[in-house]
Design a protein around this nucleic acid. Sequence first.
DNA 1: CAGTGGTCTAGACCACTTT
DNA 2: AAGTGGTCTAGACCACTGA
Lengths: 244, 244
Amino acid sequence: MNELRRPDARPLYVQVEAILNERIVSGEWKSGQAIPAEPELAAELGVSAGTLRRALARLEQRHLIERRQGRGTYVSQQTSQQALGLFFRVRNFAGKPVRPESFITGVTTGPATPEEAARLRLSPGEAVHRIDRRRHLEGEPRIAERIALPAALFPGLSLPLAPKQLGAEIYVHYRNAHGIIVVSAEEDLSAASATEEEAALLGCPVGAPLLLIERVTFDAAGRPVELRVSRLDTRAHRYAVEIV
Amino acid sequence: MNELRRPDARPLYVQVEAILNERIVSGEWKSGQAIPAEPELAAELGVSAGTLRRALARLEQRHLIERRQGRGTYVSQQTSQQALGLFFRVRNFAGKPVRPESFITGVTTGPATPEEAARLRLSPGEAVHRIDRRRHLEGEPRIAERIALPAALFPGLSLPLAPKQLGAEIYVHYRNAHGIIVVSAEEDLSAASATEEEAALLGCPVGAPLLLIERVTFDAAGRPVELRVSRLDTRAHRYAVEIV
DNA sequence: CAGTGGTCTAGACCACTTT
DNA sequence: AAGTGGTCTAGACCACTGA
């Protein structure tokens, strides 16, 4: 049933983590659903409660599950609010997190550029969907961004077009429509000058300094699922980073 | 001897972590020194090995100690290399971490500005030391920065003046000369245009976009110990962020 | 109240490092 | 061989949740 081997190279709790991770990735355990209680799971997998708990703690740290004393263990819902809290690090000058409003300005599909292929680990020329968005912070246009998605992962890309869904995080849409659970990201940050087009979009002078964010997002299976290039007007906002 | 109470609000392993943290902060256990083995420590503190291990794991995660099977547990040395690996997130376009060369251009002491007082949790007008530096990446001047330190924490600020020490991380100097162990930082990032002065220093056009990094650093006791404002020329480098 | 996760303990065994 | 940290187990007890 399980391929658990004691004298494996990896510790038992890592093997258990991988098994449970796979159950979530495969959709056997769906988002928001309760998973079996500790004693039951431990018995099924043939490990002690302590080992199982250690695996569950690692899944919780990766935000794949949520545990609450007395309630149970649930596969993360990745609601809009949670996704924003984890992945949207913009604050205003008072230090308060802000919620963006998003407006899609264009959707296209075409062969990946060399840059996109490299970052998304695609073969040269594989198809990608591209979404262009404008995002408002506290009522003002502050972010211009382009999102590139491997077409193979998002067959027949269905976009949320209702105004209500436009405000929601797109990661929630990935999960609902394509079963992709986003868990981590790598970003490269730099400074750039606003082009004419960006200046018009953001209402800033041509050549104004913008914070350029190039993000590659990964799902629970470790696949790169999104390349996002954002330009943030920092006249009224900051990007927050914590180092531990 | 210890004030460990079982029905405390905090779990035992958190209380143990705090006790061990205090021994490091107070200098009872010095940087690089081995601490007692698990059985000895557990007996001394009157807790089980499991509880002690959990506390040690948390200290290790905060980079305050290092553990190696067969060798023992050591208070972190915070060598130059380790400090850079944790706190210096600049990469070149190949994605490789780069080591900065640092040149101090000025040192002054004076009353804190309102901004400095707020970020460093000082009373208005308390004294701060200020260090201005220019930093080179791969041979070129790329960073202009000012570091503000609470004078109360750095009595008679002794600066490393030998050329060799100039290259080392200043956090290593904090530890060696003032016993301050740096463990975490919060940063606000934005984009700014180069002033005439910065342009001259960095060899870029006036108005060129720079990545502006405002960092507050905290020590093992949770005190803010440094406000650092850096301006990074991103023509040849990126600032790397990981989100988990 | 029953059932859940969270804490704490005690002890066995293993893998690694040093002498 | 002796001593270290790393893994795994089994079980007791507590704190929280919901019916």
